[in-house]
Amino acid sequence: MTFASATGAQQAFPDPVETSRGPDEETMMTTVLVAGATGSLGSLVVRNLLARGADVRALVRESSVDKLPAHPRLATCVGDLTDGADALQQHVDGVEVVVSAVQGGPEVIIDGQRELLRAAERAGVARMIPSDFSINLHGYGYGVNVLSDLRRVFSESFAGSAVARTSVAVGAFPEYFLGAVHEVLDPAAGTFSVWGDGTRPVDITTIPDTAAFTAAIALDPATAGRDVHVVGQQLTMLELRDEVEAASGRRWELVRRGTVQDLRAEVARRQFTASALFEYVALQYQVAMYDGTGSLRDVRNEDYPDVTPTSVSAYLAGPGAAHFREPAAPLRRDDWPTAV
């Protein structure tokens, strides 16, 4: 499960632009199954795939069927990853690409996605995009980040599989990174906190832009068996503070919390004292962001020229302005979070 938004507020995003299809494209439509099709990311992936002319199957629980839009090329598949490969196979028969946008703990990210992969193997699916959508998860090893470890364990399931894995890395979502869970912005205190010197560029991509890139990547057969890195904008934490000040029209006091080594020590301390995962997992992401191991490599935005990413300044002038206000409700402490 994910947080509704970084601030607890509902956010509206523009509809993707419908692309036109020529006569040749009509005979080359790709069928894509999207798991997690009603989530904050998955629902936008569905809309972008439809806009690109794909046939889409949305794998959803019975309770979420009414959240899907009506569309002649959208089919509803009622099911759950916990149903197992035998039950899931009917949903992936005839599918060329599977996109997983699910969130959760090991029973979803490892066990559930493995069942979906097994079903895809039996059905002859060509490619699968697992639910990564984060910093460069494969730039660092086990033990750095508990949520990255879940995804890394699942990625090993592709060894020897006939289904090619395509992992999409985008950096941090500003919807979460500038929210309370990351402890960067404190609207009540008027502070902007930084670990390290704040001069290393970090990768930031909005959820809608991630969905737009993911739809394009899902329909690009050249991505089979590759990690694909795309990004909205790269800027240092000090530059991000400048953007926040410009957009908010107020001064945010810079708080230097310590070195990256101090950050690692703080993560270790919290792991021993925390009562909930989210008390330290966001800082685990920051370790990899600030020491560079989680930075994107070989960014390939140019492969998808019809996707124009949102700048940080544009995001902050729109839905991101909510970050400048104190959250209306506290973060839920009982879910597996999407911390970036």
Score class of each variant (00 low, 15 high):
28 M>D: 07
8 G>I: 03
274 A>K: 02
284 Q>Y: 07
199 T>S: 14
101 A>G: 14
16 P>I: 09
24 D>Y: 06
309 P>G: 11
308 T>D: 12
142 Y>H: 10
47 R>D: 04
243 E>P: 07
273 T>W: 10
81 L>N: 03
126 A>R: 13
120 A>G: 08
78 V>R: 02
84 G>C: 11
302 E>L: 09
125 V>L: 05
42 G>K: 01
157 S>W: 05
162 A>F: 06
308 T>G: 08
225 G>M: 14
326 E>V: 14
243 E>A: 15
301 N>M: 14
241 R>T: 02
106 P>W: 10
128 M>D: 14
331 L>Y: 11
34 V>S: 00
79 G>L: 11
70 A>T: 14
205 T>M: 05
141 G>F: 05
154 F>G: 01
285 Y>H: 15
221 P>Q: 09
324 F>K: 05
290 Y>D: 03
104 G>D: 00
73 R>L: 12
23 P>I: 13
254 L>C: 10
158 F>M: 13
290 Y>L: 08
81 L>Q: 01
170 V>A: 10
86 D>E: 10
277 L>H: 02
282 A>K: 00
306 D>M: 07
329 A>G: 07
46 V>W: 04
182 H>D: 12
36 G>I: 02
334 D>I: 07
252 W>Y: 07
249 G>N: 10
101 A>Y: 01
115 E>T: 11
276 A>Y: 15
11 Q>I: 09
237 M>G: 03
243 E>T: 09
316 L>T: 01
267 V>W: 01
244 V>A: 00
69 P>T: 12
215 A>P: 10
233 Q>C: 09
126 A>M: 15
197 D>P: 15
271 Q>R: 10
